[in-house]
């Protein structure tokens, strides 16, 4: 068996094990969807009219709700990387990683298994969030192929974020630290972007940062593919090439964090 096949076979076994864990502990899935639903309701109905009017697209709240959903999708899958973080921190603490490391299995498989099983969680979360979006008035207005591409970009982003989560989980000293460290940095990253408010309404000094934030690219790409764009489209290279920039960013994130996480896994010591 070649190194690659062994890696894929082992990765599948690890992913199976992780998904059995999710199935026996459905609270995880619950947590993965309740928070974004809360965000949809709060933003859509508390800030919705105010932001919608400043966007100048039309009747306020309705426009904003359609605008918001792509941002919520990206935020949902990004926050799901916290499950990767916590999953690794837990496995480390319970000695599961030690057992894996003492087995003649592929080094990469443990991380690959985790990032792919967390991708499956993101698929479920996206289905739930799409239904939630439909209820508050969001619609896919583009073609079927474009919509599929939109979802694929979101899932690629989920996968990329999961590799960052893997590194954080393997570095964190305890499950508690992992829990907060895994989420903390996500707030500025998702708020300084086009997820909740159009970039041109952000304070000037944050606009450039937000424009080039890969998170913005993913949100803009999803909006574009779902046909949820309003008023004057955002300008600048990252916005005009949102899908391309989003895919490139994800590929770069994976290329950087996959080797880092794997290297960390080789060295990591359990408590």
């Amino acid at each position: 068996m070649t190194v690659i096949t062994k890696g894929l076979v082992d990765g599948r076994v690890v992913a199976w094990r992780n998904l059995m864990n999710v199935r026996r502990n459905p609270d995880w899935l619950f947590a993965a969807t309740v928070q974004p639903i809360m965000f949809v309701l709060l933003f859509a109905y508390v800030f919705g009219d105010a932001i919608g009017q400043s966007m100048g697209g039309g009747t306020g709240g309705e426009v904003y709700r359609e605008f918001l959903i792509a941002g919520i999708f990206a935020q949902t899958v990004a926050f799901n990387s916290a499950f990767t973080v916590i999953g690794f921190a837990n496995d480390l603490q319970k000695g599961i990683i030690d057992r894996f490391r003492s087995l003649p299995m592929s080094r990469l498989a443990v991380i690959l298994g985790r990032t792919t099983s967390d991708l499956a969680v993101s698929v479920v979360a996206l289905v739930v969030m799409s239904l939630c979006g439909l209820i508050v008035g969001w619609r896919i207005r583009g073609s079927f192929v474009d919509a599929v591409l939109g979802y694929l970009v979101l899932l690629l982003f989920a996968f990329a974020m999961s590799w960052i989560g893997a590194l954080i989980g393997l570095v964190a000293r305890s499950v508690e630290v992992a829990q907060s460290a895994g989420l903390m940095w996500m707030f500025p990253v998702s708020f300084i972007s086009s997820a909740f408010v159009p970039v041109h309404l952000l304070p000037g000094f944050l606009q450039t940062l937000a424009e080039w934030n890969p998170f913005t690219a993913v949100v803009n790409a999803a909006r574009e593919q779902f046909g949820n764009t309003f008023g004057n489209p955002p300008t600048g290279w990252p916005a005009e090439n949102a899908t391309l920039y989003a895919i490139l960013s994800c590929v770069v994130i994976i290329a950087v964090f996959a080797p880092l996480a794997t290297a960390r896994y080789r060295k990591v010591a359990s408590k």
Binding site: V9, D10, W16, G95, I96, M105
Partner: peptide
């Protein structure tokens, strides 16, 4: 190990099956 490295959410049988698969 010192701390039983057992996956709590898998059944006993599944734990052993998984380890067997990972041994190849």
């Amino acid at each position: 190990g010192q701390y039983a490295a057992v996956d709590e959410n898998l059944t006993g049988y599944e734990n052993l099956y998984m380890v067997g698969r990972l041994y190849g």
